[in-house]
Computed example of a mutant assay.
Amino acid sequence: MHLDFNPNSPPENNIEFKDFLNVDMRIGEVIEIQDFPEARKPSYKLLIDFGIGVGIKKSSAQITVHYSKEDLMGKKVLAVVNFPSRQIGKFMSEVLVMGFSDVDNEIVLFDLDKAVPNGARLH
């Protein structure tokens, strides 16, 4: 899932810092990838290990343009882990994998420049 917006426009509304703290974004490692042919837009089904405390979660991600299944195996991804689960077709997505829109509105994943453990929280 991604939202259409103009990256050159300023934010339309501000949030309180406490609202940001309520969004639990963590690093997890992709441990399994499956094609998701039933999805409306090309997607993968991901199984992601967020370590002790969060555990292993499922997600659907529209990232097939820039990433093959081989690219994703073992990749660290950033995800929101405290949104309610969302039914996508017959699949229940438990976390929202985060990415950025490129110039063609395709998703590019966040990439780390240093190692962090599974489950590390974004501050």
Rank of each mutant, 00 (worst) to 15 (best):
E32T: 08
A79H: 06
M1T: 13
F17D: 14
R40K: 10
Q87L: 03
E38K: 07
L96F: 06
V54D: 13
H123Q: 15
N14I: 05
D49I: 04
S9G: 04
R86A: 13
I88A: 15
V54K: 12
S101T: 09
E106W: 02
G74F: 09
E12G: 15
T64I: 01
E16S: 12
V81T: 15
H66F: 03
D102G: 01
N105W: 10
D35H: 00
V97E: 11
P37Y: 06
E16T: 15
V23R: 13
K69L: 10
P42V: 05
P7K: 13
S101L: 15
N13T: 12
A79S: 04
H123P: 11
G89Y: 04
V80A: 03
P117G: 08
V81M: 05
P117I: 11
M92H: 12
S68T: 11
V80R: 10
V54Q: 11
A120W: 10
V54G: 00
V95R: 01
V95I: 03
V65Q: 09
G55Q: 14
Q87K: 15
V95N: 00
N13D: 12
Q87W: 05
K114M: 04
F36P: 02
E38C: 01
S85T: 15
R121D: 10
E94Y: 09
K90A: 15
N22L: 06
E106N: 14
P7L: 11
K58T: 06
R26H: 12
V108S: 04
N82R: 03
F5N: 08
V103K: 13
V95S: 03
V116W: 08
D19F: 06
L122R: 13
E16Q: 15
L78R: 05
R26M: 09
R40L: 14
V77C: 00
V30C: 04
L21A: 14
M25V: 15
L46S: 07
I27A: 03
L72A: 06
Y44C: 04
L78C: 07
V81H: 05
F100G: 04
L78A: 14
H2D: 14
A120Q: 12
V116L: 13
D19R: 02
N82Y: 09
R26Y: 07
E29K: 12
K18R: 10
V54S: 11
K57L: 10
Q34F: 10
S60L: 02
R121N: 07
S85E: 14
G99L: 05
E70L: 02
F50I: 07
L109W: 02
K90Q: 15
L47K: 14
H2N: 13
T64P: 03
D4Y: 14
I27K: 04
D24M: 10
Y67Q: 09
P11Q: 11
P42K: 01
K114F: 10
G89H: 06
N8Y: 14
D71M: 02
E12S: 11
L72H: 08
F50M: 02
G53M: 08
A115V: 03
I52V: 14
P11D: 13
N118F: 05
E16M: 13
D4R: 09
F83Q: 01
V77F: 08
V97A: 08
K58D: 05
N82M: 08
E106V: 04
N105I: 06
K90P: 11
A61N: 00
V97W: 00
D35C: 05
F5V: 04
M73Q: 08
